[in-house]
């Protein structure tokens, strides 16, 4: 092996290692233990465990929803707009589509633009129906197709810390928004 190729190999290892060995092992109570493959709104593939590293606020929606989904998005915006410090930059709102058939990644991308959701702060996920079912079950989210067009679903918002451990769940829109805000600031103070 030439000196150059050894150097190239070392360089390669330095580049590649942090992606695997640098990934800290997930705690036993991390929801990312579920595993599974997803597609982001920009078409990129993603393993569920790759969501680790940033705190997240997770909700399940479908973009054609005319009922409470717009309210969920509005509430998520409201809950995060006033954030300050590093948590404002770290927290990523993650919306999982309950309608993989119609909510193609392309459709999710368009929805993000329509709603003015920036890519740093927001992520939308498309998965096959089985993955969606598993992730929803993991977070206690219930949903059911209603007729041809609608999907009844829980208005649940789940706050996950950087390791994917559930820190707070707001079950309905009737909950006090201050509770969610407090859970986020609690998490922010711990992460500093």
């Amino acid at each position: 092996m030439t000196r150059e190729s050894v150097a190239a190999l070392v360089l390669l290892l330095m580049v590649c290692l942090p992606l695997t060995a640098g990934q800290p092992e997930l705690p036993d109570d991390s929801v990312y233990q579920l595993g599974g493959s997803w597609t982001k709104h920009n078409g990129q593939q993603l393993e569920l465990a790759e969501l680790a590293g940033r705190p997240r606020l997770v909700s399940f929606v479908y973009t054609y929803c005319e009922h409470t989904c717009p309210t969920i998005v509005a509430r998520l915006k409201l809950a995060t707009d006033g954030l300050e410090g590093s948590i404002a930059d770290d927290l990523q709102i993650t919306l999982v589509s309950l309608d993989p058939q119609r909510d193609t990644p392309q459709r999710l991308q368009t929805y993000m633009q329509e709603q003015g959701l920036d890519e740093r702060g927001w992520l939308m996920l498309h998965g096959d129906p089985d993955e969606v079912l598993g992730f929803a079950a993991m977070l206690g989210v219930r949903y059911r197709p209603m007729g041809e067009r609608d999907i009844a679903h829980s208005n649940m918002m789940t706050l996950l810390d950087g390791a994917g451990v559930v820190r707070y769940q707001s079950k309905g829109l009737g909950d006090d928004p201050a509770d969610l805000a407090e859970a986020i600031s609690q998490l922010a103070s711990e992460e500093q």
Partner: peptide, 13 residues
């Protein structure tokens, strides 16, 4: 009748 604050669009069940 499902509670509308808990579930989106489920009132029709």
């Amino acid at each position: 009748e499902l509670e509308n604050s808990l579930f989106c669009g489920a009132g029709a069940a």
